[in-house]
Design a binder for these strands. Structure first.
Lengths: 231, 231
DNA sequence: CTGCGTTGTGCCATAGACGATACAACGCCG
DNA sequence: CGGCGTTGTATCGTCTATGGCACAACGCAG
């Protein structure tokens, strides 16, 4: 189904959420040097922008040093705390964007063992360890392509020596070259393809031609299962 | 700064976004067997719920089989497509939730080489390969704890044999045991701590006691950089 | 044929977010 | 001392999402 995952990021605190809209406002204040000019450059009303800044400061602490009167009539600039908030916002947003874009492999299976948040899921392709919500046995397991590491069979880490709890042997079926990133489809099983996102450089270094043997590994903590309605 | 990242998931199509609110509505229809009872059980108005279903179907295709008249007055049930949409929604939401919860390590540095989306960033602790937006040199690199794999030094994969492009040697500084998951802080440098989220079982299997030597690896494609305002 | 509970539709009310406008307060500067 | 551009504040109007309500259409059960 061709739907596109999308998201809105927020940084919450004291029940107030700093949204992308607020991020734009603070950023504009930083550039314009005054709340008034910032609201104007964004095509927003000064009144609302001013109120919003006060609301945000109630929750997040001092964000904008404002002064009125004086040379040029006054002005405003961001505090260090506000700069830090903006940086955090951008980082979080980038992380979410990465997830929204990422290809993913979905396996269906059943929980055969559980230990707290972690479960072992029996799937058509074998057993997968994944973070799993409580009280469900029929699950769908999602494996993000950027979480899958590919290894040459000879150099693949011993299962006992790595924290990557999931390990599948397979062969390269297809390499979808991008400019610097490549999407590699690994056949684990006639029924199961696993997609990995790796650099083109890795493709060349590992010799990931079609039919090359590879070992795919991924961490249990990067793998999420969700309850599946039995149909 | 104690802010909590939060998010709203949506599945977009044809300019219409299926939100968490819509997910609740569809789910309630599935359980209640009628649009009327569903709206009622959610404390929402039937009129709006009905209109919303039509809006969604305009964009996503047939979602609810509705019939009026007949035994019991009629009723509604979800189509397979709707069930599939709900499952997709849950999977995406779980992925985002994982990101929102995850601890992360932030490194600041400068881009010293760039090849399309990928860049090499020079940081205090060494060079990191990360997905990087265009046109920026001062960046902050985010490494999610669930993307970091820990290896015993003896079993660590050869840099040439794995697609994990980032590799740091260090020693365990602290292990924060949870029930089944543990947050391991690895000292790479006096200045740099890297946090990894691994299973408790891995902690025991790898013997991750304090001061144990480990090799931390993570993929470039799972590492995001964002522009940083030079201060 | 009537009753009943459903879907479908239209119209109005309400609440929240936001813009528009007006005006006071401030403080340097000529 | 007055001008100027800023911040601060109040009030009103608009837009959008949503709830409330009324009523028609439907189709089986009795």
């Amino acid at each position: 189904m061709d739907v596109s995952p999308d998201f809105d990021v927020q940084l919450g605190r004291d029940g107030v959420a700093l949204t992308v809209r607020d991020r734009e406002l603070l950023s504009a204040i930083d550039e314009a040097g005054s709340l008034n000019a910032a609201a104007d450059s964004l095509g927003r009303s000064y009144a609302h922008a001013q109120r919003r800044v006060v609301e945000l400061e109630d929750a997040f602490g001092s964000l904008v040093d404002r002064s009125r009167g004086g040379g040029g009539g006054g002005g405003s600039e961001l505090t260090d705390r506000a700069q830090e908030l903006l940086a955090t916002f951008d980082r979080v947003r980038a992380e979410f964007a990465g997830v929204a874009e990422a290809d993913e492999t979905v396996l269906t299976g059943r929980v055969i063992d559980r230990d707290g948040e972690l479960a072992t899921v029996e799937t058509a392709a074998g057993r997968v360890r994944a973070v799993t919500p409580p009280d469900c046995t029929a699950v769908a397991v999602t494996i993000r392509a950027d979480a899958v590491t590919l290894n040459r069979p000879a150099d693949a880490p011993e299962p006992g020596g790595t924290s990557a709890r999931n390990r599948f042997e397979g062969q390269v079926l297809e390499v979808d070259h991008g400019e610097t990133l490549a999407r590699v489809t690994v056949g684990i099983d006639p029924e199961l393809h696993l997609t990995a996102l790796v650099t083109v450089e890795s493709v060349e270094r590992l010799g990931l031609d079609s039919r090359a043997a590879v070992v795919a590994t991924f961490k249990a903590t990067a793998t999420r299962a969700v309850a599946r309605t039995e149909s």
